[in-house]
Design a protein around this nucleic acid. Structure first.
Lengths: 175, 175
DNA sequence: CAGCAGCCAGATAACCGTTATCCTCTTGCG
DNA sequence: CGCAAGAGGATAACGGTTATCTGGCTGCTG
């Protein structure tokens, strides 16, 4: 999942860990902060062990410490091509929240409607944050496009929360 | 993430592995098929090791094999209450697709617009499936509510894909 | 110039979720 | 009887996340 991203970056040109991190940050915009820096190195070693990349030590400039330059193998090239050909999409993940509501009602430990309200406030907060971040990005940039997707999804989630609230207030009235 | 769900089920009443699996399946509706059966047992052993549940062997009926009945400890109760009080929401995860487009363009190994088209066809297919599954569920049921959320999200994702396509065709025209 | 903060580059380990596979025991059925 | 299917449970391999550690180099400041 993350491996393919790193492979694709290497498909453009061989590179070393820190440079890959920087390119990833730039491509993700403000969301790049959520990414873990160390994971790039973990991923690279695993890719090397899997035979998808090769590593070559390069002394670099005399003032810089040595770096390990990674490059794709033939198998790595194939993997990148396969990735581009494949369709996939993040899973629902709404299920967890849904189960939370059912469990809260069953255990009588919390009010589902109150949980929904708290969740909506949180999502509204995130929506404001995302919209503000979108405004701060230059129009038409990569980061702005990604943030637009986040905003659309948050809005869809908010509408679902309203449906949840209708359903649960109705159940509460019936019980 | 999954631990809290299992804990909350146990908060309603002590239970054993297979029963928990069945209750989870019922609560998730047709999406329950995507759940891994084995994970329930893995989660239970971890919860026991963490001191959140206790396990007691019960001989059950003479014709049934023995089962291990799990129950919440005081620490487990606390954890469930904390979970109900907490707000969280699944991460974006749009980033992976976004990086795929950038990488495809940079490496010149695939056409971003073609990737977007393929993705949209896939999402449209899933949207149809989800809507059909929603119709098959009894109206107002738990499964139907969850599927409604999936549908709303898919529609939001499709609108984002359209924005992506506009952006990328524009870039292609400029290059 | 000395010293220290801070960044570059990389490594390690713990934890968690996913998947696949294996096991025993029981029930139903031809 | 023999066998498939399901109930109930366990295990191992793999991948992603997070936190933390190490050196070496930069640049600022007193």
């Amino acid at each position: 999942m993350q491996q393919e991203v790193v492979l694709a970056l290497l498909a453009k040109e061989p590179s070393y860990g820190y440079q890959l991190r920087a390119r990833l940050r730039q491509a993700l915009g403000p969301l790049g902060e959520a990414m873990n820096d160390g994971q790039v190195y973990v991923t690279l070693t695993r890719l090397e062990r899997a035979g998808l990349v090769t590593c070559e030590s390069a002394p670099g400039t005399p003032d810089r410490p040595d770096r390990k330059v990674y490059a794709l193998t033939a198998a790595g090239q194939q993997r990148v091509s396969d990735w581009f050909a494949e369709v996939s999409w993040p899973k629902p993940d709404l299920a967890e929240f849904h189960l939370k509501l059912l469990a809260a009602a069953a255990a009588r430990l919390a009010d589902p409607v109150a949980i929904i309200d708290a969740q909506r406030r949180e999502l509204l907060r995130r929506l404001r944050d995302a919209q503000r971040a979108e405004m701060a990005e230059p129009a038409g940039s990569d980061g702005a496009l990604l943030l637009e997707g986040i905003v659309l999804r948050l809005q869809a989630d908010l509408r679902w929360l309203e449906a949840c609230e209708r359903s649960w207030t109705h159940r509460r009235a019936q019980s």
